[in-house]
């Protein structure tokens, strides 16, 4: 067997992975292109690679300790890819790609490299397609929750609202909280931004988990607020004003996450003291 020059090996491995998982990557690309819930997927690999590059000084000094466990992980990835191709679906094939990336890192660099690249690898989970079984189960409850909270907000604001399931009747104007309004879009986007913000603004790894957890109720509440805004003013229910209002509510959610990070830090300092 020919001995490839060492710097070439990672590139060859990357090319082989891209070739082997081309159908899964194409499927992910299609979903990012066609599903507005998942269009942030385009940014996920870019940011993951940027983080790897940003931390180059750290991992360049690590000793390469190739681990035979990498082959086991690669085999697991190949098995998942086979299952995906046989009918388990795009999610399994896409997850197999990430598992195989982790296996390749283990094979070439060993555990120190895998540990160094754990965060970008975990961040890449945000680019995986929506898992249909979870999405379908979560959609209706989230729609109803958003409708309930939006109706509550409008009631509190002094407006007369009749809620019929996921339809809000506001003085004869009817707004339907459809699947696309269920909050998943806010949930994925805000969760992703929470992790990125924690990584950039705070060195503590637990902060990423804490802010991700805080993003869940915040996203649900923000989505309901967005629906309530559309119910409050017909002007905000359609077209550019509606899109801008959605963006503003998202930015406000992000600002709340910034405040939450400060609050968590104060609590941490208080308990440390």
């Amino acid at each position: 067997m020919r001995n490839w020059p060492k710097p070439l090996l990672p590139w060859l491995t990357a090319a082989a992975l891209l070739a082997c998982y081309a159908p899964a990557l194409r499927g992910m690309f299609d979903q990012w292109s066609n599903d507005p819930d998942m269009s942030h997927g385009f940014l996920v690999p870019i940011l993951a690679l940027w983080i790897v590059w940003r931390e180059r000084e750290r991992w360049r000094t690590l000793p390469a300790e190739p681990s035979p466990w990498g082959f086991a992980v690669l085999a697991a990835g190949a098995g998942m890819q086979l299952a995906g191709a046989l009918g388990a679906g795009l999610f399994v094939s896409a997850a197999a790609f990430l598992v195989s990336v982790a296996g390749s890192v283990l094979c070439l660099g060993g555990w120190p490299f895998l540990r160094a690249w754990t965060f970008p690898l975990l961040l890449s989970l945000f680019m995986l397609p929506k898992l249909a079984i979870v999405y379908n189960r979560a959609t209706l409850p989230l729609q109803l929750l958003a409708s309930r909270i939006a109706a509550g907000i409008l009631h509190t604001a002094g407006m007369g609202v009749i809620r019929e399931g996921n339809i809000l009747d506001i003085a004869g104007r009817r707004i339907s909280v459809l699947e696309a309004c269920n909050g998943i879009r806010y949930l994925l986007s805000l969760g992703f931004m929470a992790v990125i913000f924690a990584y950039l603004a705070d060195g503590k790894p637990w902060m990423r988990v804490a802010l991700l957890a805080a993003a869940v109720p915040l996203a649900i509440l923000a989505n309901a607020l967005r629906v309530a805004a559309a119910g409050w003013s017909p002007w905000l229910a359609d077209g550019a004003p509606h899109a801008i209002a959605g963006g503003i509510v998202f930015v406000l959610s992000l600002a709340t996450l910034v405040l939450a990070q400060r609050m968590f830090n104060r609590l941490y300092a208080y308990f440390q003291a």
């Binding site: 507005p36 998942m38 269009s39 940014l43 707004i175 909280v177 459809l178 309004c181 806010y186 629906v227």
Partner: peptide
Amino acid sequence: VSSVPAPPSL
């Protein structure tokens, strides 16, 4: 009935 989807996640 009008629906009110959020802007695209991108």
